[in-house]
C-alpha cells in the first residue's frame, strides 16, 4: 500500500511537474506565437497600408490618366479646330486669291476690250476720216472736173456760140445789099431805090438789135424788113421773090444770133 501510494505520489508528481513545465512551454510558445501574431498583424497592417497607398496611388494615377486623356482629347479637339480653321482660312485665302485673280483678269480683259474697242474706234474713225477725205478729194476732184468740164463746155459752147454769132453776123452783113435785087421797070426805079435804102436801114437796125440782143427791136425791124421785101417783090411784079427768101434767111440768122446771145447771157450771167 505504501509502495503504491509512493508510486502514485511519484507518478502524480511527475504528471503535475510535467504539466507545469508543459504549461511553461505552452506559455512560451504562446508568447512566441503572440509575437508572431503581432508581426503578422504588423505585416498585415503594413500590407494594408501599402495596399491603401497603392490604391491611392492608383486613384491618383487614374485621375492623372483621366486628366491626360481629357487633356489629350481637348488637344485633339483644339488641333481639329485649328486644322479646320486653317483649312477654312486656306480655302478662304484661296477663294480670295482666285477672286482677286478673276477680278484682275476681268479688269485686264476689260482694259484689253476697251483698248480693242478704242483701237477699233480709232480704226473706224481713221477709215471714216480716210473715207471722208477720199470722198472729199473725190468730190473735190469731181467738182473740179465737173467745174473744169463745165467751164470747158461752157467755154466751148461760148466759143461755139461766139463763132456762130460771128458767122451769123458775117452772114447778115452780106444781106446789106441783097444780090437778088432786080431793078424792075424804069418807072419804079425811084421807089425801088427807096425800098433798097429802107432794106439797108432795116438790115443795119436788125444787125444792131441782134448784136445788142434786143429781140423785140429785132422782130420789129424784121417785120419791117419783110414788108420791104414784099414791097420790092410787089413793086417789081414778082421779080424780086428772092428778096423775101433773103429776108427770111437774114431773119433766121438774126434769130440764131439772138438765141445765141440769150444763151450766152444765161451761161454767163
Amino acid at each position: 500500500m505504501d509502495a503504491l501510494l509512493k508510486l502514485l505520489a511519484v507518478l502524480t508528481l511527475i504528471w503535475g511537474g510535467w504539466m507545469y513545465f508543459k504549461n511553461a512551454d505552452c506559455d512560451t510558445e504562446l508568447k512566441k506565437i503572440h509575437n508572431e501574431l503581432r508581426v503578422a498583424e504588423q505585416e498585415f497592417s503594413d500590407a494594408q497600408a501599402a495596399y491603401d497607398a497603392e490604391v491611392k496611388k492608383r486613384e491618383a494615377l487614374s485621375g492623372e490618366v483621366t486628366a491626360l486623356k481629357e487633356n489629350n482629347q481637348e488637344l485633339r479637339k483644339e488641333i481639329a479646330l485649328k486644322a479646320k480653321e486653317k483649312r477654312e482660312r486656306a480655302i478662304q485665302e484661296r477663294r480670295e486669291r482666285l477672286e482677286a485673280e478673276r477680278k484682275a483678269r476681268a479688269e485686264e480683259l476689260e482694259k484689253e476690250q476697251e483698248h480693242r474697242i478704242a483701237l477699233l474706234d480709232r480704226e473706224k474713225q481713221f477709215e471714216k476720216e480716210e473715207r471722208e477725205r477720199d470722198e472729199a478729194s473725190r468730190k473735190e476732184a469731181e467738182t473740179q472736173m465737173d467745174a473744169e468740164q463745165s467751164e470747158w463746155e461752157k467755154e466751148q459752147k461760148s466759143q461755139r456760140l461766139q463763132r456762130m454769132i460771128e458767122r451769123s453776123t458775117r452772114a447778115m452783113g452780106r444781106y446789106l445789099t441783097s444780090s437778088a435785087f432786080v431793078p424792075g421797070n424804069v418807072n419804079d426805079y425811084g421807089q425801088i431805090e427807096k425800098l433798097k435804102q429802107n432794106w439797108t436801114t432795116y438790115v443795119r437796125a436788125c444787125i444792131d438789135a441782134a448784136n445788142k440782143g434786143d429781140s423785140k427791136r429785132f422782130e420789129t425791124f424784121g417785120r419791117k424788113l419783110l414788108n420791104v421785101a414784099n414791097s420790092l417783090n410787089r413793086v417789081s411784079k414778082g421779080q424780086n421773090a428772092d428778096c423775101i427768101n433773103d429776108a427770111t434767111d437774114f431773119l433766121s440768122e438774126g434769130r440764131k444770133i439772138l438765141k445765141a446771145k440769150n444763151q450766152l447771157s444765161k451761161d454767163n450771167p
Partner: peptide, 27 residues
Amino acid sequence: GLIVVIIASIFGGRYYYSQNSNLESSI
C-alpha cells in the same frame, strides 16, 4: 504527506492541464 502531494499534484496537474489546454487552444 504523500496523499497531500498526490492531491496537490493532481490538482496542480489538473490546473496546468486545463491551462495547457487553453494555451494550446489559444496557440
